[in-house]
Nucleic acid binder design. Structure first.
Lengths: 144, 144
DNA sequence: CCTTATTGGTTACTTTTGTAACTAACAACA
DNA sequence: TGTTGTTAGTTACAAAAGTAACCAATAAGG
């Protein structure tokens, strides 16, 4: 009855994805952590605002698939660092629009460069075509 | 001086990897969490022991790239669940060899099936060739 | 209007993780 | 032997994440 299971963790996609994600994140984390004392979620929120301009916390939750409490905490932290500002919407006072301050934007600009440099370095071992396939694949898996 | 940064998070590999890893893990987690009240690290340790037979905590750390405190805690938890057993090595009493108990092995067997089923379902949207490329790519990125 | 959802966001409490300091066993070498 | 260094693993404490309960504000239906 006992099957001769030859199951290798390296055949299990979630495991591989986690290992790869961890490896790259561990390497990149110091960039924003050391420079700006930011947490991963803060980094993500900053990037969403930097890229999309302005959005509500809810929109960030939906787009980035982060739980609202995590976003809430990240927003507070970024606010305390004076990287973003909230603005209550008069037509619906439950919403608040978030946007980067000038200093938030300059931090964003710096971190974008770091990210691009990091990504370029990471992908040197792969051809442009491989990189594109990868991205497409991951986007499908993550349902982005 | 301000560059018209057109940086999309979806161009940043660590972000994509994390999103994909999170998405798949969130989906798979209930399998071992609901059935056996196991944590992710416990699951991983169990799988390493199930696959390689017996090894020390240190070997698991190295192979799975998990920090020793996390492994230590997972080992204790699995021991309490009677899924594994420790055996001190007489020739070097700092080492202890870990191995699955009978019940640990049967849990492992069940979870392997779940994992295989999950992986198969996840990959239905991709060709065999795509899947293999993906795995190869991730193994390179994760330096496994 | 008034009651009952629903929605955006925060707070309080618990569980898990990260970090550093620690113990015990061994190794190396004077 | 004794001192110093290293290694496997644990423990204690702090930081972070998950979960659920909680406010307001609004919507919806009688």
């Amino acid at each position: 009855m006992t099957k001769p299971t030859n199951f290798d963790l390296r055949d299990f996609m979630p495991y591989l994805l986690n290992q790869a994600a961890d490896a790259t994140s561990r390497e990149f984390e110091p960039t924003y952590k050391a420079k700006y004392r930011m947490l991963r979620t803060e980094w993500r929120v900053l990037f969403h605002l930097g890229h999309y301009g302005r959005m509500t916390a809810k929109e960030i939750c939906d787009r980035a698939q982060i739980h609202k409490t995590k976003v809430s905490r990240a927003v507070s932290a970024l606010e305390q660092k004076r990287f973003l500002r909230r603005k209550e919407q008069p037509e619906d006072r439950r919403h608040e629009t978030l946007s980067l301050t000038a200093s938030g934007q300059s931090v964003f600009a710096t971190l974008v460069e770091d990210a691009q440099r990091f990504d370029a370095a990471l992908m040197t071992e792969f051809t442009e075509q491989e990189a594109n396939q990868m991205r497409a694949f991951l986007i499908r898996i993550a349902k982005l």
